[in-house]
Design a protein around this nucleic acid. Structure first.
Length: 271
DNA sequence: GAAGACCTGCTA
DNA sequence: TAGCAGGTCTTC
């Protein structure tokens, strides 16, 4: 579930809560497959005693630099989240110096913690983070022309832009008034620019609103404080199938594109 | 491209 | 009870 804005919100809150600079005193692994590439026992051995340095983010990856020189790369996949209070489905618990426990919660158990010597080995498969300067209009236009595929699956392809997921891809396409099944090579210069700007805008607005969560369930996005994102009220397309398009009033259509649920306006998103 | 795998829980 | 879910990976 978490996409770039949700992961960014979590990274900011972990920093604000002072997780950086604390020593890892203990590690409890309740679901061993979360940890890669080591066994839970090896994983513990390697990180206990290390101090957490900078906490950053690239695409949907959370990055903890450790004083040991190793890096902890955390991907929340569909349902991962962090909390400073214990709760159900806590898969990993870090006991930190200064009486703080950091709980990694993941109902669906899809999330992964990778402990690596060189983060580039994992991150090199990603394109530029969608909110960095490296993700420029010229780069984006080139990628879209070069790989002529349906535009929505291309937006979800992390090797094109890192960070977009199903919600913000639908939102960006709605903003830019482009049909999700358009072939990327058929987009005009004006359409490419509109889509490029829409991507940056929906992600920035998502961050400003603390991310998006749709319902009240346990699999829903929660930030470190246990709050659901306020971006829910701003969503124009995702999850609004059958409801009127806010631009033209036409009922939005829900379909499947590249095996992902996709909502769009059949009238104003051009085919 | 598509389909299945990995998981649990919510919603219809 | 079946179908679906914010993601990615593997195998056709």
């Amino acid at each position: 579930m978490p996409e770039l804005p949700e992961v960014e919100t979590i990274a900011r809150q972990l920093r604000a809560r002072g997780v950086e600079g604390r020593e890892i005193l203990s590690v409890k692994v309740n679901w061993a497959p979360t940890v890669e590439p080591f066994s839970a026992v090896q994983f513990k051995k390697q990180i206990v005693g290390a101090t957490i340095g900078k906490i950053t983010r690239t695409g949907k990856w959370l990055i903890f630099s450790l004083s040991s020189g190793q890096t902890l790369l955390i991907h929340l996949r569909m349902a991962g989240s962090f909390s400073l209070e214990p709760g159900p489905h806590d898969r990993i618990v870090l006991g930190l110096s200064g009486e703080m426990n950091l709980y990694y919660r993941d109902t669906r158990k899809f999330g992964r913690w990778k402990l690596v010597d060189d983060p580039a080995v994992v991150l090199k498969s990603l394109g530029p983070d969608a909110l960095t300067r490296g993700f420029s209009l010229s780069y984006f236009s080139d990628q879209m022309k070069r790989r002529s595929r349906m535009v929505k699956p291309l937006l979800l392809d992390q090797s094109v832009a890192a960070g977009l997921g199903n919600i913000y891809a639908d939102e960006a396409l709605w903003e830019a008034e482009i049909h999700p099944e358009r072939l990327s090579g058929s987009l005009s210069g004006a359409e490419l620019e509109a889509l490029f700007k829409a991507i940056k805008q929906v992600l920035k607005t998502g961050i400003k609103n603390g991310g998006t969560s749709l319902g009240a369930g346990k699999t829903n996005y929660r930030d470190v404080e246990g709050e659901s994102g306020r971006h829910r009220e701003e969503v124009k397309a995702y999850g609004r199938g059958g409801k009127p398009c806010e631009r033209c009033g036409t009922p939005l259509e829900k379909t499947v594109v590249a095996q992902r649920g996709t909502t769009f306006c059949p009238k104003c998103q051009r085919t």
